[in-house]
């Protein structure tokens, strides 16, 4: 399938988000708060990486080999949002990111599942099955931990991550062309509105003392062309082995 430049950029944004959030989730393998959660969170990380592979695969017919493309691009060529890029050293931040990100991810797949493009619709249908488990995990974990978190960590994480999370909805520069082509019908702004409603409802349902306003998109992302602080070190980590010998098959 040959996509327009606008669609390619649109799909690349989602692929990079999936790749980087999956890579960030992997940092908890072996260090989850208890063994069952360790196993569950690791599965979610694997799923997100799988989604990234699927999305990159749609783009790669004329771009090149998957791992080189995914790992060795120049930082300015990524289209990830900062929520997917940032390091969450504390479990509370990782859990809150998981909830905020997967709420958004489900909406993005839902929009793509309705695309007239058969390839992306098929990939979305497959991802939606996995995403339902991710959402159930986030909901069950948050509902149980949030209600009993006397330390206030969850509320602090929500306050800290809310402005960054809104950057998920920072549209790629030519998203209007994607809509005009009919590739998807829901704009990022449309999805953001639904996402804000869902997040607000979750917070109320869980009885959390966290205010949630429809925060604007992080302007500094500049249509996802700017990377977050700390991205370069993350990127170096991701490509450390592959860049050792680009002629090698690993």
């Amino acid at each position: 399938m040959t996509y327009s430049a606008a669609v390619r950029d649109y799909l690349l944004a989602f692929a990079d988000d999936e790749h980087l959030v999956g890579a960030r989730h992997t940092s908890w393998i072996g260090l989850g708060p208890f063994l069952e959660e360790d196993l569950a969170f690791c599965s979610i990380a694997q799923d997100e990486l799988g989604h990234a592979i699927g999305l990159y695969g749609l783009l790669l017919a004329d771009v090149g080999e998957l791992d080189t493309f995914a790992l060795l691009r120049a930082s300015q060529d990524y289209r990830s949002c900062w929520l997917a890029e940032i390091e969450c050293r504390d479990w509370n931040d990782s859990l809150v990111r998981h909830w905020l990100y997967d709420r958004a991810e489900a909406l993005r797949w839902e929009a793509l599942a309705a695309s007239p493009d058969a390839d992306i619709a098929a990939l979305a249908a497959r991802a939606q099955r996995e995403e339902s488990f991710h959402l159930a995990h986030a909901d069950q974990f948050m509902s149980r931990v949030a209600a009993n978190d006397t330390s206030g960590r969850i509320v602090d994480s929500i306050r800290r991550l809310a402005p960054v999370a809104a950057g998920i909805w920072d549209a790629t520069a030519a998203e209007s062309d994607v809509l005009a082509e009919g590739f998807v019908t829901d704009s990022s702004a449309d999805l953001a509105a639904r996402w804000n409603d869902q997040i607000r409802a979750d917070i109320a349902r869980w009885g959390l003392a966290a205010e949630w306003s429809d925060a604007g998109v992080v302007a500094a992302q500049q249509h996802r062309t700017q990377r977050s602080e700390g991205f370069d070190a993350f990127h170096d980590d991701l490509q450390r082995v592959l860049s050792l010998d680009t002629a090698a098959t690993w």
């Binding site: 790749h19 890579a23 992997t26 940092s27 393998i29 072996g30 260090l31 063994l35 360790d38 196993l39 690791c42 599965s43 990380a45 694997q46 990486l49 799988g50 990234a52 592979i53 990159y56 998957l66 791992d67 995914a70 790992l71 980590d237 991701l238 450390r240 082995v241 592959l242 690993w250």
Partner: peptide, 30 residues
């Protein structure tokens, strides 16, 4: 053993390899 293997998962030279090593380490934790 899982903790020993986790150190190089972030640097896996490919996305599928990262999945594979994650799955293997997940087996050990399991």
């Amino acid at each position: 053993g899982g903790l020993t293997e986790r150190d190089w998962i972030p640097h896996a030279p490919g996305l599928r390899l990262k999945q594979v090593f994650l799955a293997k380490t997940q087996d050990e934790i399991g």
